[in-house]
Structure formats: C-alpha cells, structure tokens
Amino acid sequence: MTEEAARRAGLGYAWYLFRRNRLTLAGSAVVVLLVLVALAAPWLAPYPGDATADVHPERALLPPSREHLFGTDELGRDLFTRVLFGSRISLTVGVIAIGLALLIGVPIGLAAGFFGGTVDEVLMRVCDVFMSFPPLLLSVAICAMLGPSLTNVMISIGVAWWPWYSRLIRSQALSVRERGFVEAARAAGVKPWVVIWRHILPNTMAPVVVQASMDFGSVILTAASLGFLGMGAQPPTPEWGLLVSIGRTFFLDQWWYVTFPGLAIFMAVLAFNLVGDGIREISDPRTREA
C-alpha cells in the first residue's frame, strides 16, 4: 500500500465514522447552512437596510407574518433580517476570537513544551493565573476595562481562552520533542525555531484543531452573553445576544422578539458542539466503540 493510498483510506475511514453518527451529520448540516446564510445574508434578507440604520416606527412590534417572518422590533425593523445578519457577526466573532487565542496560545505552548525548564515553569504559571478565572468572568472583566464594543469582545475572548490551547500544545510538544526525527534534526544542527516550526508544530496540531472546533460553540455563546450584558456589540448592531437582551423587556407581550434570536443562538451553539463532539470521537480511538 502506498503512502497516498493509506492516507486516503484513513480519510475514508474518518468520513465513514463521521457519517455513522447521525447527530454529527445533522450538526454539520446546520453549520454549513449557517455559513451559507452568513455569506448570502444581503441577498437572502428581505430588508437589508434594517440590519444597520433603517427604522420604520409605523411598523413597530408586528407579530410574525408573511412580510415579516420573525415579526418586527420596537423600531419597526424586520427581525428575520436582523437574525440573518446576526449569523455573520457570531461566525466572525467565533473565527477571530479563536484565531486570536491560537495566535497567543500556540507559540507559548510550543515554547514551554520544547524548551522546558525555567521557560516552561514561568509560562505555565502565567497560564495558571489566567485559568484560575472562569473564562466568561475574565472576558467580562476585560470588556469592562476596554469599553464595550465588538472588537473588544473578540479581544477579551481571545485573551481568556488561550491558556487552554497552550496547555494542550505543551503536552503534545513534550512528547514529540523526544521522538527520533526531532532528535535527528537537532543533532544535525538545525536551529531550535526551525525545529519547532517544521517538526513540532505540524505534529501537535491535530488535538488543537479538535479542541478549537469544540470551543466554537462556547465562544459564540460567550459573545452572546457579553452582548446580553451590554458589554459587546452596540445598538443597532443585530448581534444575537444584544437582540435577546433588548427583547427581554417585550417578552410578556411580544413573544417573537426574544424567541427567534434565542433560537438562533441555541441552534448555532448546539450544531457546533455536535460537530466538535463528532470530530473528537473520530480522532480518539477510545470513543469509537459503542
């Protein structure tokens, strides 16, 4: 069997495992749908102007109808449009916040794992400091300090999230470091950063990718929570958490206002968690049985 064939067989087996789990499949379908909706929001939305600055006071708080599938809000904006545009914000926040966490966490984890000793000790204690706070609380504190905005939400989540990736990468790097090909590279006089970049990093990424896919849902939820607390996106941004927060006052008389953005958060978080779980099951032989 050639190397290429083996890789293909591996992928095929992964696909088989993925397909076998119906929940994962359903989750990925929702994720794909979400991405498509986010990309096509300007064309799908019936009233694209309502996502930004338009207001129509004469159409305030209309119940769901054919013109307004999800009803309208207190300033007459179409909630269907706003929820559609909200998917863009949530996905962007998820990608950027996790990207930022990886950007901080991965180099730190690699350095700690590869060099060990004092470097490891110092970096890991810094990690401990960050990990001693629940991530949501830390994000809230950072947002309160930087001032409320969507950019600051991404920064705060990234800053609160990186230590988990550092820990993960470090443990991987520790074991990869002792492998033959690394020793060979070092014996050949390759500079440490080249060893890290070419040999250690590629061999530590698999669990990080799994972890990141599992975290995606939590990050979206955290961003929505920050929006709900008024520390995230600012009105009139159609961020889901913010919509729920504002719609809460209308809950007793206008059920649709909180319900649809709330459902959107629920669906997105559930879908990403299912996909994350699926990927973990595939990558971990111990969970494959049953």
């Binding site: 600055a53 006071p57 207190e74 300033l75 001032g147 409320p148 008024g230 600012q234 009105p235 009139p236």
Partner: peptide, 24 residues
C-alpha cells in the same frame, strides 16, 4: 434612551452624519 439614540442615528444618516452609539 437607547431607542431615542437609534432613532437619532437613522435620522442623522439622512444628512450624511454617522452616529456611533455606545452604552456605558
């Protein structure tokens, strides 16, 4: 007050003024 601010934003946009709203 938030609603008043959003209505102002929509109206200011019609005279070419961009209003950024921040809750603090």
């Amino acid at each position: 007050v938030r609603r008043a601010a959003e209505l102002m934003k929509a109206s200011f946009a019609r005279i070419g003024v961009d209003l950024e709203i921040r809750a603090m």
